[in-house]
Write a protein that binds this DNA or RNA. Structure first.
Lengths: 213, 213
DNA sequence: ATTGCCTATGCAACTCGGTGCATAGCAGGA
DNA sequence: TCCTGCTATGCACCGAGTTGCATAGGCAAT
């Protein structure tokens, strides 16, 4: 669990209230670590009792008071320790890949609209990243340490979106091709690849193709 | 929640017991959808009571009996319906990105070993994917629908690993560069980028660089 | 002989994370 | 005027998912 650490990083970059953190998790940090305000408030309370962060109540006019949190020395120490721990191997949850494999047992055309929607979303995100890069890192040779680290993370996001976009085009081409090949199956619901239910024929997949996604 | 659907796809590709499914989730399907045996057994029971799958008790010699599950027509129908639902926007949990940003408040060299380990893992996985592609899809023009779908998913995995590998090299170059630049900070623990705790200077990041990862 | 691993299934307890709802003052538009 | 939306924090509940443990026979190696 790294939400504590994501919050610590965010608070080190700039102190803020739970509400402000929640909005940051909708924008910046949220691109690679999501969290709802509920979770953030709960974790903030725990971190405070653990001494990782310190609070300051700030009265405001025209809007409710807020609690501004800052990273405390124990929090920094915890972060430093965390950086030296082994990286856990990222639990993967790639829903689209499951759906693509599922389409073998249904109409390939059924998935096309959703893949296109997905594709457009990634295209928009890539455009946003590239715009942000132009704005924030116009001179990549004159950056301090923190900016260089932010830039390398951003480059990762850009390359990921580029790669995903190209792959989704590949997927779409494949789906269109398959949908065009068997026009008769277009209207049918399930049960088309195999004769009926149960075991499918030509099922050599278990140990070969299924072994590598 | 798509574990049901991942299991359905796996059972359609080949019927099997909970234990067999668990092992598949360690290898093939597990590359893009992880699950422990506990979860699988629980979900299998629920799917069975819902009529999505059917069971057959199989006695074995020399090892415990097993329950072999197969996808039933209602399961196929549920899968077809799922394929037409909107794709939920993938909750991102990219721990390494958080760590890279965290390193701005600690020693950049501290992260290098873990990034290298990570890099080697991705290199090994890429090699495995490429080997699997050679083995299972030597003639990409002569594939049936299911194989073509499996191949396009595999291509996605390959491109993802290629991209990740290049990016991790980029990250390593950046970290080495930063670690070489401030040799004085090498041995220090936390608290080096900013003067002490609290708010860091040059904190224009909140709305600019922080806005795009 | 004992240790450890593999097959095969399952219970119990827990944490993590998300949804829905509540409060409460203020601002702006229909 | 009413409705919506923003700031700001929080409770209660539920489902998903993990960890630890249990059982139980058979196999292989030390």
């Amino acid at each position: 669990m790294a939400l504590e650490h994501a919050i610590l990083v965010s608070l080190l970059e700039r102190p803020g209230s739970g509400y402000e953190l929640a909005r940051r998790f909708d924008r910046s940090i949220g691109r690679f670590w999501t969290a709802t305000h509920q979770q953030i408030y709960r974790v903030l309370r725990r971190m405070e009792t653990d001494g990782w962060i310190s609070v300051e109540e700030v009265a405001q006019d025209g809007r409710p008071d807020k609690k501004v949190y800052s990273a405390a020395p124990p929090g920094r120490a915890a972060l430093a320790g965390w950086l030296r721990e082994p990286v856990e191997p990222e639990t993967v949850r790639h829903e689209l890949a499951v759906r693509i494999r599922a389409v073998a047992f249904d109409d390939p055309a059924a998935l096309i609209p959703e893949v296109e929607r997905h594709r457009d979303g990634h295209a928009a995100l890539l455009a946003r990243y590239l715009h942000g890069e132009q704005r924030d890192f116009p001179a990549p040779d004159a950056l301090d340490a923190r900016q260089r680290l932010q830039h390398v993370v951003l480059r990762g996001g850009i390359e990921y979106e580029r790669m995903t976009l190209a792959w989704l085009d590949d997927v779409l081409a494949t789906l269109h091709d398959l949908a065009g090949a068997d026009v008769d199956g277009r209207s049918a619901g399930p049960a088309r690849t195999g004769p009926a239910g149960g075991t499918d024929p030509a099922d050599r997949t278990g140990g070969s193709a299924a072994d590598t996604p």
